[in-house]
């Protein structure tokens, strides 16, 4: 599904990722854990194609093709979804409108017919019911005045409406209490299927109690330092990242 090869990325002239290798198979759930400043968010942004993240060497292959030349909207339409650590507030744009623009933009890209308002509402109602999102959240402007939990739930709603092949969750657990964490994890788990790949990026192990990964990778100093099974997360929880940051220094 996703293959990252020898990726070097600079931001404002400073190298953040220094030869990162990562391979995610179809249907797998991977977790990337790492200390602050290790390059976790940079990795998520560079996969999504954000401006200002300069790839100086290496490549990112999605379904076998390089995506480095694709615009963020093209990557989204190809099936890559990034759930933001800090979802952005967009005053004046109703959440429903935003979701419909998003779904129809992706459908246009894929040469599919756009959904009219009624068709879209039907799709949305179903997702909303599954995720337990309140109607009120749909009518309000995108993320404006949402609590931390509501913002994250809105990310998961967008994800479930867009049904991406690859979902990257950037620190989705930050700022969530345990109830919100369960709801969000439940939403992610619902989307788990053999055709879909999930990459969970997190600082803490606790999210992985709810979204159980097939593989755990440790990111420090801009490279994957170690890869293991889900037990690696527990080890990190116990011993911290010192071994890896020290090791790489």
């Amino acid at each position: 599904m996703l293959e990252i090869k020898g990726l070097h990325v600079s931001v404002d002239g400073k190298e953040i990722l220094k030869g990162l290798d990562l391979k995610l198979g179809t249907g797998e759930v991977h977790a990337i854990m790492g200390p602050n400043g290790s390059g976790k968010s940079t990795l998520s942004y560079v996969i999504a194609g954000r401006d200002g993240y300069k790839v100086t060497a290496g490549d990112i292959l999605f379904k076998g093709n390089s995506i480095l030349d694709l615009l963020p909207e093209e990557r989204a339409a190809e099936g890559i979804f990034l759930a933001f650590q800090y979802p952005v507030e967009i005053p004046g744009v109703a959440n429903t409108t935003f979701l419909r623009e998003s779904v129809n933009a992706v459908r246009r890209y894929r040469g599919e017919d756009e959904l009219d308002a009624m068709q879209f509402i039907r799709v949305l109602r179903k997702k909303v019911a599954e995720l337990g999102v309140s109607d009120d959240l749909l009518k309000r402007a995108v993320n404006v005045g949402f609590s931390g939990g509501e913002k994250k739930r809105n990310e998961i709603l967008q994800m479930s409406v867009l049904e991406p092949a690859l979902a990257v969750l950037d620190e989705t657990d930050s700022g969530l209490d345990i109830d919100a964490l369960k709801i969000v994890s439940d939403g992610v788990n619902r989307l788990r299927d053999p055709q879909r790949t999930t990459l969970v990026i997190t600082h803490y192990q606790r999210l992985l109690d709810y979204i159980v990964p097939d593989y755990v990778h440790v990111l420090a100093n801009g490279r994957i330092q170690r890869t293991g099974g889900k037990e690696l997360a527990l080890e990190l929880e116990k011993n911290g990242y010192a071994a890896f940051t020290g090791e790489a220094a």
Binding site: D51, P72, E73, F81, E101, S102
Partner: peptide, 28 residues
């Protein structure tokens, strides 16, 4: 630019995203 990237990451093309941001700005 952050809002623009957010919208583009949801598949909304750059120019349409800019339009939505303009409308969003004027809504108030």
């Amino acid at each position: 630019e952050t809002a623009l990237f957010y919208m583009r990451s949801r598949g909304i093309p750059d120019d349409l995203a800019r339009n939505l941001l303009i409308q969003s700005f004027l809504a108030e």
